[in-house]
């Protein structure tokens, strides 16, 4: 299970995550020994948009029952239960835009053809969960913690639960625990 927490309140809109994403996919997609010394950065797989002071981060949440997969007419979407990610099979995708229409996070884009010869075909692309990296690079590079990604079960939920429990426990040590201690003292 891949748990992706997006907190736009924390986001400064620096778009470093977007750059990191492009970078993450450039290094591995570039064939060495090519003529280009500095290959062009590929399109990022997440998008940061600053609009009237509000920040939007469009990134795939890797749903467990993804609506994009239900809508796909070509069977190109696959849920990889082991890695907890939703993948697009580029060979099967026909670029019909159905997934774009379904994703409530706006996390799928299509690289579209516009040539007059109609030779290229549109394909959908989205976050691939950075499975070739130890950690998803967008979250690693985010300076404010607006994007947090955990690969384990319920990443953020578990952390939040612990914080909550710690707070409850703090209340215990301030109020009730003192009462208990004093009672013991008096008895002695």
């Amino acid at each position: 299970m891949l748990s992706i927490k997006v907190d736009t309140v924390k986001c400064d809109g620096c778009s470093l995550c977007q750059l990191a994403c492009s970078f993450a996919h450039m290094v591995l997609n570039t064939e060495t020994g090519g003529q280009q010394k500095f290959p062009e950065l590929p399109d990022p797989l997440l998008w940061v948009k600053v609009c009237e002071g509000e920040v939007q981060i469009d990134i795939c949440r890797h749903c467990e029952n993804p609506p994009c997969a239900d809508a796909c007419v070509a069977g190109a979407f696959k849920v990889d239960m082991e890695r907890g990610i939703v993948e697009i099979d580029q060979q099967k995708c026909v670029g019909c835009w159905s997934c774009v229409m379904e994703c409530p996070f706006g996390a799928i884009r299509i690289c579209s053809h516009s040539d007059k010869e109609c030779t290229l075909q549109s394909r959908a692309f989205k976050c691939d969960g950075c499975s070739m990296w130890d950690k998803p690079l967008c979250a690693s590079f985010c300076p404010t913690g607006a994007v947090q990604i955990a690969r384990n079960n319920n990443g953020a939920a578990a952390i939040q639960r612990r914080e909550r429990a710690a707070l409850l426990q703090k209340g215990l040590s301030l109020g009730a625990a003192r009462y208990v201690n004093r009672e013991i003292k008096h008895r002695a």
Binding site: G95, C96, W97, V100, H113, S114, S122
Partner: peptide, 11 residues
């Protein structure tokens, strides 16, 4: 409905 007309998407 979603369709694409030579690279122009319509939803």
């Amino acid at each position: 409905n979603a369709l694409e007309i030579f690279g122009l998407p319509v939803i």
